[in-house]
Simulated scan of single mutants.
Amino acid sequence: MAVQIRNDINELLLEEEIGDDLHEKLVSTQLVEEQQEIKYHFGEAVLRETFFDGYHIFTGDASVYENLHVNATEAIPAVSLLFMVRGHFNTNVGHERQRLFGSLEHNLYYNPGGVENAHILKQENLAAVGMNFSKERFLQLAENNGRILDMLGNNVAGNRPIILNKKSNHPITARMLMILDEIRNCQFLGGHKKLYLQSKVIELLALQCEQQEQAESLQKERFALSASDKEKIFFARDYLLNQMQSPPSLTELSRAAGLNEFKLKNGFKQVFDNTVFGYLNDHKMEYARQLLQSAVQSVTQIAEQLGFSSVQHFSTAFRKKFGVSPVKLRNA
């Protein structure tokens, strides 16, 4: 794969050929695992990759110290699932128009041309998780597995570019975040690790397709949401999460976002496939799970940080969401 990285004034910062053995690793029946720590004056990153049986799983954490423009030529076109956990960048994802990936967004795409461009603004602590399927592996998974996968499979078989959600990226759900975290922290080894990771990747693919089907089925029933209103819905989401410890009422949130309550509630359901406070609760629970696993704060401190009136209320909400108490999760 050939990679070029330039800055805003078109200076060539990096040009290199990487991954000449990509196909060999992708089709390997043995687990191939690699980790790279990359440091340049324009940015640094830690990349972890796993290859086996037509699957390629990668996780990346990066900081970018100036605006970058990346051009990459893929040696082997693949069907890609991209989950932007934190940060944002623009990419053409195999199409003529640029697509912005923001925090907690995901999509699926296939780029038969093998050329991708990405524009990454200066920012710190980007985090992304992605999966690539070889064409053959994806077609095996797509066959007779639902309308969405049939449609995607037909296009891939015909070597036509695809993108799951053409209008915008879908939001990453709480369940998806859990799976992404499980992938990043997998403790299995060898063949058991292959089996475990394969099950997680297939589950993410199923969740993506289910989310797309639900969006399409509800589209006819939903009112039209203008681009301006959609921006206000995203503002309301960010405002709500920033006030997580003491969240505003619907009236206060709608006033801050410049929307009436009806449009706020229905717009939130349309954009995030969740109610306003259902979304807040999912975010709280996922954040609590991460804090518990980090083992830095006590359960009491976490409950207070998330705005729960008592540890008991926090424990009840956590058990309802994940089926296990905070203490048991920490001790697992």
Rank of each mutant, 00 (worst) to 15 (best):
A2I: 13
A2P: 00
A2N: 13
V3N: 02
V3Y: 02
Q4D: 04
I5A: 07
R6F: 07
E11G: 02
L13Y: 06
E15H: 09
I18C: 07
S28K: 03
V32Y: 13
Q36A: 09
Q36W: 14
E37W: 07
I38E: 11
E44C: 09
V46N: 15
V46K: 15
R48T: 15
E49C: 07
T50H: 01
T59W: 04
D61F: 09
A62I: 05
E66D: 12
N67D: 15
L68V: 10
T73R: 11
I76N: 04
M84T: 09
V85M: 10
T91P: 00
N92Y: 00
H95M: 00
Y110M: 03
P112Q: 04
V115N: 06
H119D: 09
I120H: 04
Q123V: 07
N125H: 14
A127R: 15
V129A: 06
E136H: 02
F138N: 05
L139D: 02
Q140P: 03
L141I: 11
E143F: 07
M151A: 14
M151I: 14
L152T: 02
A157W: 02
K167Y: 09
K167D: 12
T173L: 01
H192T: 06
I202C: 01
I202G: 02
Q219L: 15
F223L: 10
K230D: 10
E231N: 10
I233T: 09
F234H: 15
D238E: 13
S246G: 11
P247G: 11
L250D: 09
L259C: 02
N260C: 10
V271S: 06
F272R: 00
N274S: 13
N274L: 04
L280F: 04
D282L: 10
M285F: 14
E286I: 15
L291R: 14
V299M: 14
T300R: 14
A303Q: 04
A303T: 03
A303G: 10
L306Y: 04
G307E: 08
F318S: 02
K321G: 06
S325N: 05
R330M: 14
A332Y: 12
